[in-house]
């Protein structure tokens, strides 16, 4: 039978504590409400309209916008392409990011590590658009890459990566790689040296150490990095537009078009919420597949 162990707080003290808690939480929740929930609520409202609610037009409500995929079957292609982009970008970021994080956490110290950290987060300090445009300078015909190639192989044909799928992926990986490196670094740095040594003492060589010890323990970092990268990438529109040429059509660009070109805010809003639903679905599925592994040890 459960017994009361701690004496209950006097009423005045516990309500004061409640006020203190509220006071600490209100700024955060207030900001969330103002900056996130209210605009989202407005968008949700729009998504059920027939046309953007400006001018003296009467408001017409409809579910039509949510049937967008059936009215416009080409959107299935676009949606799949966006998810593909997300997978490629996340995959490449993981492939490059985890080894980078490993090198950072286990092979560098002191000054060298600080300098490397700085270099890694440098992309965050630059303006996104400027970054993407500088990639056009590198990737286009006659650009830096092309010229470098011709320095080595003068007779090679012109190299233009611009306006292609790889160009989009390059731009996205460059922009989002730091996220993966940082989240993986946090996980890898938490791996105690003694754990690796213990594995060695039990007869594990470097490949086994990587696959059986380091990779499983880095999984939380990989997963949180993947989430931080996949979600924005499938909605990205700057890189596809600027680096992709005619290839650069994604859910992000389609939604952007609805807001800036077509002035069809209801459709844009509905597409956004459909995308949100897809992302939540993906989360729901993966959280079932990776329960014990992702949970903190």
């Amino acid at each position: 039978m459960a017994t009361r162990i701690a004496p209950s707080l006097p009423a005045r003290l516990s309500s004061r504590r409640a006020w203190t808690t509220a006071g600490l939480l209100i700024p955060a929740y207030g900001w969330l409400t103002l900056a996130v929930f209210l605009p989202l609520g407005a968008m949700l409202f729009f998504s059920f309209l027939k046309a953007a609610p400006f001018g003296d037009r009467p408001l017409v409500f409809t579910f039509d916008q949510y049937l967008a995929f059936f009215r416009r079957p080409y959107l299935f292609d676009v949606a799949w392409r966006s998810i593909e982009l997300g997978l490629w970008t996340t995959g490449l970021c993981a492939l490059i990011g985890l080894p980078a994080a490993l090198a950072l956490a286990r092979a560098t110290r002191g000054r060298a590590r600080q300098v490397l950290f700085l270099l890694i987060i440098l992309p965050f300090w630059t303006n996104g658009l400027v970054r993407i445009f500088s990639w056009t300078i590198v990737l286009r015909e006659g650009g830096v890459l092309d010229q470098a190639l011709h320095l080595v192989l003068p007779s090679a044909p012109g190299l233009s990566l611009l306006y292609s799928y790889p160009a989009i992926v390059i731009g996205l990986v460059h922009a989002y790689l730091p996220y993966m490196i940082l989240t993986c670094y946090l996980s890898v740095a938490a791996i105690e040296d003694s754990v690796v040594e213990a594995a060695r003492s039990l007869g594990a060589r470097t490949p086994a150490i990587f696959w059986k010890i380091i990779l499983p323990l880095s999984l939380p970092g990989l997963v949180s990095g993947a989430i931080l990268i996949f979600v924005p990438v499938i909605g990205s529109f700057m890189e596809p537009r600027i680096l992709g040429g005619r290839i650069g059509v994604t859910m992000g660009t389609v939604i952007e078009d609805q807001f800036t070109q077509a002035f069809n805010w209801p459709l844009g809003a509905a597409l956004s919420f459909i995308m949100l639903a897809v992302v939540l679905l993906i989360f729901g599925l993966t959280s079932r597949i990776l329960p014990g592994r992702v949970a903190s040890f």
């Binding site: 003694s194 754990v195 213990a198 594995a199 003492s201 007869g203 323990l217 592994r293 040890f297």
Partner: peptide, 17 residues
């Protein structure tokens, strides 16, 4: 890994996962 020693560490170093 070749020496076939058994080692117990101060922090136990159990594999947390």
């Amino acid at each position: 890994w070749k020496r076939n020693v058994g080692m117990v560490f101060q922090s136990y170093a159990l594999f947390p996962h």
